[in-house]
Design a protein around this nucleic acid. Structure first.
Lengths: 146, 146
DNA sequence: TATTGTTATACTCTATAACTATA
DNA sequence: TATAGTTATAGAGTATAACAATA
């Protein structure tokens, strides 16, 4: 740092470093995705629906750590934009099967390419090998049994 | 995952993985630090004050990416708890020098040990060498020039 | 004219309780 | 009795505009 502050203790904490890096990457992500009017949660929900047609709200919530009440408004918004469709579940009358519309598929094809490009450019100080190493280490943390 | 969802695209994004890991570590951090009634921002502000006695609000804001209006209430809270003191700046009448009180020092000595222990246990799926590698890669990202 | 610290305020994100309809 | 989806609501976290005092 050029301000001469002692930040050594904070920089020894895995959590501090992980959060700072996440904010750096996501800040760029939000700038890049504004052109599609997609915030991070919209994007991850749409991406998961796109790769898993027929997924239910509950599955989205547990996969993405979103609380059910907070998903309601999000789904309402992307449905109103005609990016997703809901159809009744064949065996469970309570659940709804979610899928991308043609419009949603077209948007996400572009958005996913932009997102990957954004994240890779945010990590461009790292070599491709280092990025793979980083992702592997991060997954060890958040996939570890509690 | 045991739910059979295809999450391969999201797991290819550095930002998604970094955010998921950060939330995992910080969730544990918040649980562990509740005994001291410290939230992440309180902790990082107090830690930086402790390691940089005489630091100003503005320096805290730029080092921690906090906006000045949002620091006001935070400082008011930890000052009311008698964890910090404010003294007038010797050369700049606008600024205030911040420092930990004896009570603040005692609290932070415990809290910093607990925080490090919490973060290391959250990353216990990694070897010490892997943790060092991870921290180095993360710093390359958030310290890189924009 | 620019900067430090502040107030007021708004918007987003996240969290809890309670309801309905189905299982 | 438990679960999927929903409503209402409250609390954090984060953002901008504008001000007084000082540089």
């Amino acid at each position: 740092m050029s301000d001469g502050l002692d930040t050594r203790y904070l920089e020894s904490l895995p959590g501090y470093n992980t959060r700072r890096a996440a904010l750096t990457i996501i800040s760029r992500f939000m700038d890049r995705m504004a052109q599609y009017d997609l915030r991070p949660a919209d994007f991850s929900v749409l991406s998961l629906i796109g790769h898993n047609p027929g997924i239910t709200s509950r599955q989205l919530c547990s996969a993405l750590n979103i609380l059910p009440p907070n998903l309601v408004g999000l789904l309402k918004g992307i449905e109103k934009r005609q990016l997703i469709s809901r159809s009744s579940h064949p065996t469970d009358g309570r659940a709804m099967r979610l899928a991308l519309t043609a419009k949603g598929k077209a948007l996400m094809q572009e958005a996913e390419a932009t997102a990957l490009e954004s994240d890779l450019s945010a990590a461009s100080a790292l070599s491709p090998g280092e990025i793979n190493t980083l992702i592997g280490l991060l997954q060890k943390i958040y996939l570890a049994p509690t």
